[in-house]
Design a protein around this nucleic acid. Sequence first.
RNA 1: GCCGGGGUACCGAAGCGGCCAAACGGGACGGACUGUAAAUCCGUUGGCCUUUGCGCCUACGGGGGUUCAAAUCCCUCCCCCGGCACCA
Length: 404
Amino acid sequence: MKVPPLEEQLRLIKRRAVDIIPESDLVKKLERALRTQKPLRVKLGVDPTSPDIHIAIGVVLQKLRDFQDCGHTAVLIVGDFTARIGDPSGRSAQRKMLSQAEIEANMRHYKEQALKILDPSRLEFRYNSEWLEHMNFAKLLELASRYTVAAMLERDDFAQRYQSGTPISIVEFLYPLAQAYDSVAIQADVELGGEDQRFNLLVGRAIQERCGQEPQVCFIAAPVLEGLDGVKKMSKSFGNYVGVTEPPNEIFGKLMSIPDALIERYVTFMTDLDWEKLKELHPKEQKQKLAHAIVKRYHSEAAADAALEEFERVFARKERPAEVQKVYLDKRVLKPNGTVWVVELIAPLTKSRSEAKRLIEQGAVELDGVKIAQDDQDVLFRDGLLIKVGKHRFAEFYLKEHSP
RNA sequence: GCCGGGGUACCGAAGCGGCCAAACGGGACGGACUGUAAAUCCGUUGGCCUUUGCGCCUACGGGGGUUCAAAUCCCUCCCCCGGCACCA
C-alpha cells in the first residue's frame, strides 16, 4: 500500500478529531515518518474487562484505522496486568478482577471484533503484563517519583473526591502511571483515546518525557458519546449501547429509537455522512440513513438494505418479520378438542405464568393478528400459529412430538 | 482498635411490632399517541393456582430468640460506610 502524502494524511487524521495535543508535534512526527520511512507507533489502550466493542469505542478504533491507512502502526495495549490486580480496596466497582484465562478469552473475542475495523497487517497486539509483571518495587518507586500528587489531583474526579473527603486509594494514583508506563514501554508516538482519557494520555506524555523519551502526541479521538438514552455515556454497564457484533436488525432498530437530539452527534462522529445534507430531512429519514450507514460499516451494504427493509415491514407496515423464532409446544398441554389454554401457550415466551397472564390482561398478546383479551380462554391450535407479544416479540408455534 | 451510621425488591430510598409483597423515585415491561421516535398520559412490575381468593408459598444481610403476630424488639455472626486513634 502506498503511503499518502502529508497533506492527505493530515486531512484524514484530523478529520473529526476532538483535540490534538499538541498538533505541531503531530505534524512534526508525520513529516519525520515520511522522511525516514519509519511508521509512527500509535497506541490505544484496551480494557480487557469488557470484551464487547460498542459503536462509541468504534469511533476511536476508526481513527486508529485512519492512522493505519496512512501507513502507521497501530499498537493495541491490553491492560491485562491491571485488570488482574483490580482495585484491592474494592472501592471502584468498575474495576473487577479477572483471571488470566478470562482475560485471554475476552481478548480473543475483542480482537475478532476489532478486526472488523482495523487492518491486521499494521497491527501490534500487546499485553501490558509483558513489562509490568517484571517491574519490581524499586522500579515502581522510581516511576512514582516522576509524578507529583499535585499533578495527580488535577484530574477532576480526584480533585472532587479529595475535596469532599471521598477516599482515593493509592492504587488509583498508580493506574494512570501504569498506563503512562505502557507508552514508555512501547515507545508510543501517538496515543489515542476518548475524551475521558485525556488526563491519562497527558500523564503518559509527561512520563515519557521524564524518562528521556520523545513525548507522545495525545489524540482525543472522540467526545464522550451518549448512549441510546441520550443522557448517560454509552457503556455496557448502563445497557445503553450498540455492540458492533450485534445482528443487523438489532443495530438498526436500536438506532431508530434514539432521541432526535442525538442524531447529529451520531451522524457526525460515527459515520462519514454529511450532516449538512441530512439536516433538512425528516428525523425518521435521518435516523434511517444513520442506521443504514452503521450497519453497513459493521456488516455489509446488503445487510443494511435488508435491515432497512425489515424495519419498514415490521414497524411501519406492521407486517410479520421475515424470520420468526419457532417455539415447540409440548403435546401434553393440547386438549382433546385441539385447543390450548392461552396462558399455557404464551408462557414459554415469558418469565413466568403470572407475567404471561399480566401481558394478556394488558392487551399485549395477539394470535394470528387477533388480540387476546382474557386469560381464561382456550384457543384452537394449529401448526404455524403466529403469536405476537408486545411490540416486537414474534413466535411461531409448532407441536413437539414427544413420547412419555 | 474505639466510636457512630448502615445492610429492604433490578437500582436508589421509605417503613421501625399487626392494615407490608413493602410508600416514593428511577429503570424495565405493556397500552394510548407517534416517526417502533423522544416527550407525555395510563397501567403493570416475587412466584403459584384455567378455583383470582380479605387464597397459598417465598422474600426485608446470615443464624437464633421474644411475641398470638417481626423488615420492625433482643442476642450473635458476616459485610459496608464515616470519624477518631495507631503507624512499624
